[in-house]
Design a protein around this nucleic acid. Structure first.
Length: 467
RNA sequence: GGCCCGUUCGUCUAGUGGUUAGGACUCUGGCCUCUCACGCCGGCAACAGGGGUUCGAAUCCCCUACGGGUCACCA
């Protein structure tokens, strides 16, 4: 059985890079009918873990990820960790260290002065004397020396470390009794039954320490996969200055969750030349073995393209639903469908979609200067006047774009006009600019009564300008 | 600085000893056209450098350069 986990430290929101490793872990577990667990790494009690967990659950919900079991909070498992500290102490695999901070600092400085690697020198490793008074000891684990620690990473291949290069007897419990990161991670991963640990590249050099803990405690090692980092568009480390770090920001910007997931799965992973992955295809095709070895810069244009793709291919009901988030409620079944179909190939985000829809729904309050200067002149005004009269007197009912097309063509024929002469003035009257969907669609969306109002408004504006 | 990891078009990537080095995004030329988009057809653009191994290397090995990660009583 495959069991994976996502184990963020509580920062208050779900990071975009975090979502990617969560997605990989999720997919790998679900694909294999396994379990995907969530654990909050809140051994540092200063942060608000309840709020952080809530933010993660919210983001998971938005993109459609679900985890099994209850969320595990490390802060609630201190008793458990303490038992393992005691166990190692009893077995002689760990020991109390009474070295003070000052003592350790001077030791470190001396080492650095000699250009040596700063490391704990093991001075209390075999200590049997009387402990110094007034020092709360830390607990250190006995690390192996003069050997190698190797493991097969599912992404990087065999990774090998010389213990003397990287290890010392590191602290597993602080002087206040609280356990440290590398200790609890190993315990929890083992106790939670993880078979596969998929996590960020930045943990690669923690892995040997965790292996020391696994071995001291007699736990089986999981398979590790260290996923390379996501870089900003400039190829540098992602930081808060790069904008959207919080997954929920993407919702605010009008991105669809399926676009975000598709973007993320493809960033550092591939399946041949395929670019578009539905959720079920992700489930079917994902395999952590072909995650790329190197870091990848995220490029906003591709996300945008993906988002546009999903907008184009969403049902109109879905888009109407999404538009509500941007305070846009559209009434009328035909009108909803028409608005969506006229804009779905034009909007890159739902936010843009809402903005464009508003230009058709609401009477323009001003006119785009350039477009107005270019297309609105005495001749255009005369045409618009005639057109208003024509629409007013038109005998048949006018609802659908096809009806407006038929009527407008008749009008053009009667007046020997070409579409080119008519389209832009009408467009400016309807939406205030020279850019919109097909005029027939716009006309149909605006509706017969408002068409007349909007044209008259433009005419009035023109005449006031030219008194 | 030590250790670890990495390096194919600007970006995401395919490629696992023999390819005109493929696709996608971006940019760009054209077609379509009532504008803008969409769509379609085309274009620009890459194996970090140097040594080996081999009949033959983007692919295997070594070195260099560059980038990243990590070295806490943070996680």
């Amino acid at each position: 059985m495959i069991t994976t986990r996502f184990a963020p430290s509580p920062t208050g929101y779900l990071h975009i890079g975090g979502l990617r490793t969560a997605l990989y872990s999720y997919l790998w577990a679900r694909k294999n009918s396994g379990r995907f667990l969530l654990r909050i790494e809140d051994t540092d009690l200063k942060r608000n873990s309840a709020e952080a967990a809530k933010a993660i659950e919210e983001a998971f919900k938005w993109v459609g990820l679900t985890h099994d079991d209850e969320v595990i909070y490390q802060s609630q498992r201190f008793d458990l960790y303490k038992k393992y500290v005691t166990k190692l102490l009893d077995e002689g695999k760990a020991y109390y260290c009474y070295a003070s901070k000052e003592e350790l600092d001077t030791m470190r400085e001396a080492q650095q002065a000699k250009k040596e690697r700063p490391r704990y020198d093991g001075r209390y490793r075999d200590f049997t004397g009387t402990p110094p008074k007034g020092v709360d000891p830390v607990v250190r684990i006995k690390s192996p020396s003069n050997t190698k620690i190797e493991f097969e990473d599912g992404i990087k291949g065999v990774v090998s470390f010389n213990t003397d290069d990287i290890l010392d007897d590191f602290i597993i419990a602080r002087s206040d009794g609280t356990p440290t990161y590398n200790f609890v991670v190993a315990i929890d991963d083992a106790l939670m039954g993880l078979s596969d640990v998929i996590r960020g590249d930045d943990h690669l050099s923690n892995t040997p320490k965790q292996i020391v803990v696994y071995e001291a405690l007699g736990f089986d090692l999981p398979k590790f996969y260290h996923v390379p980092m996501i870089l900003n568009p400039q190829g540098k480390k992602l930081s808060k200055r790069d904008g959207a770090m919080d997954v929920m920001e993407y919702k605010n910007m009008g991105y669809l969750p399926e676009a975000v997931l598709n973007f993320l799965i493809r960033l550092g992973w591939s399946h041949g030349d395929q670019e578009i992955f539905s959720f079920s295809e992700m489930l079917e095709l994902f395999d952590p073995t072909n995650i790329n070895k190197s870091a990848s810069a995220y490029n906003p244009e591709k996300l945008e393209w993906l988002n546009a793709h999903y907008i184009k291919n969403s049902s109109w009901e879905r888009i109407i639903e999404e538009l509500k988030f941007f305070d846009l409620e559209i009434h009328g079944h035909d009108r909803k469908e028409l608005i969506v179909d006229s804009l779905r190939e034009r909007a890159k985000t739902i936010k843009e979609f809402a903005d464009m829809a508003r230009t058709m729904i609401e009477t323009p309050q001003s006119y785009d200067q350039k477009a107005y200067n270019k297309f609105i002149n005495q001749e255009a005004i005369e045409i618009l006047k005639k057109y208003t009269a024509f629409i007013n007197d038109y005998a048949e009912a006018l609802h659908l774009p096809s009806g407006f097309e038929k009527a407008t063509k008749q009008f053009m024929e009667q007046n020997s006009l070409k579409m080119k002469q008519l389209a832009q003035p009408i467009r400016i009257a309807m939406v205030g600019s020279a850019v919109s969907p097909s005029v027939y669609d716009v006309l149909s969306i605006v509706g017969r009564a408002d068409i007349v109002i909007r044209i008259e408004k433009l005419i009035n504006f023109y005449e006031e300008q030219n008194v």
